[in-house]
Design a protein around this nucleic acid. Structure first.
Lengths: 160, 160
DNA sequence: AGCATTTATCTTGACGTCAAGACATATCAT
DNA sequence: ATGATATGTCTTGACGTCAAGATAAATGCT
């Protein structure tokens, strides 16, 4: 009887006609992701990066040398709107973690380049971040983790 | 090879020392919840309610007669901060969906009461909302749904 | 070549969220 | 009783996000 069960039982009492099976799954997913997001953010903030800043820096870092992508590329990889990406890049540029470099091949476009400081910030953070992610799933068994990942993959396939 | 697999393989190439198992699960969870949240919001907006507005109205509705809870009660049930709840109540009060009623038992406190219009708004929306939730999970088999729900329950237990 | 369309990025204005702290009232300990 | 502490709600200021549209350059069509 967790919190989601309480919500479901309230609906059952008030609206017994509603089928709440889907609500259970979506409710647990949402609550879980909220908790996980907060835990992840805590560790990143301890290293001086917001989740959204880390999201961009990590995308550039894992793209490999020369650690440059256009805003459009970043957009396609990060599930945010173009306005949000402009804002993120502005913040990171102010902080000195990225630079806007003119794209010689297309003057509409620009390349976002990780600076030395930006590279260093990712490298100083990603280890603790990954360790934290491992901690967050540690109460699942190996079988649970494999089963959960497989189910999420199947579920996610409907949307992307 | 979904989008999360692409991210993992980039990390593998750039940082083969990192164990990305946890990143896979948390990444799929986050992407999935983002997609689901957008789908849910679309349907609610078609009925004139934001997700956050529906969240409060539905909490009052399923609490049963007389459809009144204190801001603190609402807070405890909805995973938001007190400032956020004040803001939500302000919006709903302006829209005429709830009223602030003085609590005779504790003058620090106030009760948030669903108005007739607020009740009607929930009742007009909840059916489509639940149907939409069912649609969103329809590509999972019955066994998948049961297994996923069980895993999420176990995972969530670590946090609440 | 020249015009229309498409692509890439940025701007604007609105919203939802939070942490920290302010304020009023209630409760507790003596 | 009364002073200290706890509780309940609201305020403030800062962020992150989005949709819609503005701007500029590239591409395609004739």
């Amino acid at each position: 009887m967790d919190r989601v069960d309480k919500i479901l039982s309230q609906w059952q009492r008030e609206r017994p006609d509603l089928d709440v099976e889907a609500m259970a799954i979506l409710g647990r997913l949402k609550r879980l992701t909220t908790h996980l997001g907060r835990e992840v953010e805590q560790v990143l903030l301890q290293h001086g990066l917001s989740s959204s800043a880390f999201d961009v820096l990590a995308t550039l870092r894992r793209s490999g040398k020369p650690y440059r992508l256009s805003p459009g590329d970043l957009l396609a990889m990060t599930m945010v709107s173009s306005g949000t990406m402009t804002n993120r890049i502005d913040q990171l540029e102010k902080a000195g973690f990225v630079e806007r470099v003119l794209n010689p091949d297309d003057r509409r476009s620009v390349l976002i380049a990780l600076t030395e400081n930006g590279f260093a910030a990712v490298e100083a953070t990603v280890g603790a971040h990954v360790a934290n992610q491992q901690r967050l799933i540690e109460n699942l068994s190996d079988e649970d983790k494999a089963a959960l990942d497989a189910l999420l993959r199947k579920f996610l396939a409907k949307f992307e």
